[in-house]
């Protein structure tokens, strides 16, 4: 144990600070030093800082097991889940900033909740159907491979890392981002959803949708749940182009596709 103490690193956290309730105080970076412990995650380190050094520090953790999506933050310039990030994988100096593209609540805390609710509302992120649930009937059968495929897309935890890492979303606030396209893909592939190709086209085809993406695919690199966002992107784009051709409508994306 004595050996551990001798070799433990003193981590230097440079943390972005801004409290909107004190508008006269401009944002600044504040340094905190913490002795590294085995299996130390940013969840443990940040709570230690708040409880022992500065109790006003704002950040969000809920499940602390990488399933709730609350703790997205910029870790040395890269979006990541704080709870899933171990200090052992980081250098001694660790810069933490709030995720860009989301409204700042304070320090490392950002308003992902409103952003995602609004995204869901924009894409009608639910099963669209004409009928109502009949409590007397048994479930409609579904091939397990289809269920697996939907589950794979349904795994998104809406942490916002893909949006924060997206070049387009950083300059265009209405861009749906990879998470939005993934949500669309999830319902597109669901046989229970009764939307027509045409109505999907209206959701995805403008520059806030699939054709807004410029293909840098940072989203695919930073997704903490390893969602196959590259595949999602090509799936949605393929579906959008297909519905475009079937509609016969003139659209810049169609001309582009025809040229290609």
């Amino acid at each position: 144990m004595a050996e551990n103490i001798k070799t433990a690193r003193i981590l230097k956290f440079d943390i972005f600070r801004y409290n909107p309730a004190e508008p006269d105080k401009p944002p600044y970076m504040q340094r905190f030093e913490v002795e590294e412990a085995p299996y130390m995650s940013l969840f443990l380190a940040l709570n230690q800082i708040r409880e022992e050094q500065d109790s006003s520090l704002q950040f969000d953790f809920v499940c602390r097991s990488a399933v709730c999506g609350s703790c997205g933050m910029m870790v040395n310039g890269r979006p990541a889940l704080g709870c899933q990030t171990l200090t052992a994988d980081l250098p001694e100096v660790i810069a933490l900033h709030p995720l860009p593209t989301f409204a700042l609540i304070g320090d490392l805390s950002v308003d992902t909740g409103r952003w995602f609710r609004s995204m869901v509302d924009r894409v009608n992120g639910w099963i669209e159907r004409e009928t109502e649930f009949d409590r007397a009937s048994i479930e409609a059968p579904m091939d397990n491979a289809t269920a697996d495929k939907i589950y794979e897309a349904d795994r998104c935890i809406e942490c916002g890392c893909c949006v924060a890492g997206c070049a387009v979303a950083n300059v265009r606030p209405d861009f749906l981002g990879a998470t939005g396209l993934n949500r669309i893909a999830r319902f597109m592939m669901d046989p229970r959803d009764q939307r027509s190709e045409q109505s999907w086209f209206e959701v995805v085809s403008d520059s806030e949708g699939v054709f807004g993406c410029i293909g840098m695919m940072a989203c695919d690199d930073v997704c903490p749940k390893d969602l196959p966002l590259l595949e999602v992107y090509s799936y949605v784009r393929r579906k959008a182009v297909a519905s475009l051709f079937s509609s016969g409508e003139d659209h810049p994306a169609r001309r582009e596709a025809e040229k290609a």
Binding site: W126, E139, N144, A147, D148, Y151, D154, D190
Partner: peptide, 17 residues
């Protein structure tokens, strides 16, 4: 009833093969 309603609302339950 509840689990079937959840299927109706979109839960991708694992299915019997």
């Amino acid at each position: 009833v509840a689990v079937r309603e959840m299927a109706y609302w979109g839960v991708p339950w694992t299915r019997a093969t």
